[in-house]
Simulated assay, not measured.
Amino acid sequence: MLNADGRRRFFPAGWETSLLFGEEVTPIGSPALMNDARPPLSPDQIAQMRRLHLQGGGGRWFTWADWTKAHGVEDNPGARPQAQDLSFGNYQLILQAVMQGQGVALGWSPLVDDGLRAGWIVRLTEQRLTSERGYVIAVPARRNPVGRQFRAWVLAERDRSQMSNA
């Protein structure tokens, strides 16, 4: 996670951190769930669908409430959790439920990018939500050539993947 000033937190002094990916989410669903609807859907349409929620987090990741508020749906009854909504304690279970057409979820890039490319899931809209948070790799700074080599390899793979997907 990143602080607003760009300094890394959660790691003790003496650790080197590198940002892998910034946090970016967009609503996703199964192609089968769409029936006659064709993306892009409006935020109001998405708010009326069965939404899959990731439990916990305590502000560490985006929720549907964050997404609907950011896209002007807070006054819509669909902005609040609804009886048909489902909650999960594991993001992989949410992705499985999305692919099985059980509802729509917030999809974190790059975690869902392979599924989007393969057509297992679709973006419901291009309206995204971003933050200053993100995914980092951290290694102890002192005399840790293996850690530095591993970090360099991970960053190179990230860059190679981004270039091949561009």
Rank of each mutant, 00 (worst) to 15 (best):
S164F: 01
P39C: 04
W153S: 03
M49P: 00
L19Q: 09
S161C: 03
S30N: 13
A105E: 02
E23S: 14
L86G: 01
M1Q: 05
T17E: 15
P39L: 04
W64G: 00
R38S: 10
S87Y: 07
V122S: 03
T130G: 04
R148F: 09
D85M: 07
Q127W: 07
M34W: 01
Q45P: 00
A13R: 14
L52Y: 05
R151T: 05
G59Y: 06
S30T: 09
A47C: 11
R148W: 06
M99I: 05
H71M: 11
F10H: 14
A47D: 01
T26N: 09
V122M: 06
I137H: 01
P12Y: 06
F150G: 01
F62K: 04
R9L: 12
N3L: 15
D113A: 09
W15I: 03
A156K: 08
A37C: 05
S87F: 07
G57Q: 08
Q55I: 08
T26E: 14
E74F: 11
R50S: 08
N90T: 08
W120G: 00
L41C: 04
G6N: 09
R160W: 07
D5A: 04
T130P: 02
G107D: 04
W67N: 02
Q149S: 14
R60V: 11
Q55N: 14
I94A: 07
T68N: 15
V136H: 13
A13C: 04
L116K: 01
Q45M: 07
I121M: 12
I28Y: 06
R50N: 08
H71E: 09
S161V: 06
A141N: 11
A65C: 03
Y135S: 12
E132H: 15
L20S: 00
V139A: 09
A4T: 13
G59P: 01
A79N: 05
M49A: 08
A47Y: 02
E74D: 15
R133E: 12
F21Q: 10
R60P: 02
A118M: 07
V139Q: 07
L106W: 05
Q55G: 13
L155I: 04
R148G: 07
A83K: 15
I137K: 01
W108M: 10
S42C: 10
A4M: 10
N90G: 09
R128A: 14
L54M: 12
G22Q: 12
L95R: 09
L93I: 03
R160S: 06
Q45A: 14
G89T: 15
F11N: 09
I137C: 02
R7V: 10
G103C: 09
G107W: 04
L129Q: 06
R9N: 14
T26I: 11
Y135H: 13
L52R: 08
I28M: 11
E157I: 02
R151I: 01
G6A: 11
T125W: 09
P43F: 08
W67K: 06
S109A: 10
S161I: 07
S161F: 08
D44E: 14
W64D: 00
R133N: 12
R80Q: 14
L106V: 07
V122L: 07
T125L: 09
A4P: 08
Q96S: 12
R148Y: 08
W61Y: 15
I46R: 02
